[in-house]
């Protein structure tokens, strides 16, 4: 089984579960009443379709291995790239509570510093300069020039 078909199998199973959840959840709402279709009417149809198509996808992945797809290409690629992308995403996810607590400048600044240093492999000094310059530039652009709010954090926010 290729990595593409493994991915399809996981996606098929996951989407089957999602479709089942949609059908189960929407079956609790009114399907049709005297005033017309209720809130459960539309979701039951697409939820059911998701289940059918996702099951087909899962079964297809067990039978055949599609030739095209990014996962198939990845087998020839450097897996470090995938880890770098995932690490960047984890960093971004962790930056959200930081921004919530310390504000955009601190949270995004730390994230940018780590991104430039460890994902893009630049020196500490360059990472610091880039992080500081970008954070300050965005602060000037959004809250100052465009009057668009950025997260202020618990300590600096109102």
């Amino acid at each position: 089984m290729t990595r593409q078909s493994t991915g399809d199998l996981i996606a098929g199973v996951g989407l089957t579960a999602l479709g089942a959840y949609i059908v189960w959840e929407s079956s609790a709402w009114k399907f049709f009443g005297p005033e017309g279709p209720g809130p459960g009417f539309f979701p039951i149809f697409y939820g059911g379709l998701i289940v059918v198509v996702a099951i087909y996808l899962a079964f297809r992945s067990l039978r055949v291995a599609p030739a095209e797809g990014i996962f198939a290409d990845d087998e020839e690629k450097d897996p470090k790239g995938v880890w770098a992308a995932l690490a960047a995403w984890v960093g971004l996810a962790l930056a959200i509570p930081l921004m919530d607590i310390f504000g955009f400048m601190a949270g995004f600044g730390i994230f940018t510093f780590l991104l430039v240093r460890f994902i893009f492999g630049q020196s500490y000094l360059r990472a610091f300069i880039v992080a500081a310059a970008i954070t300050v530039a965005l602060h000037i652009l959004f809250p100052v020039l465009l009057e668009v709010d950025l997260p202020e954090g618990m300590f600096w926010g109102a």
Binding site: F108, T112, L115, V116, V130, I134, L138
Partner: peptide, 13 residues
């Protein structure tokens, strides 16, 4: 390394 953090920052904003 300048372009991507910049785009991420604008996206968050």
């Amino acid at each position: 390394y300048i372009l991507h953090p910049m785009i991420l920052g604008v996206a968050i904003a």
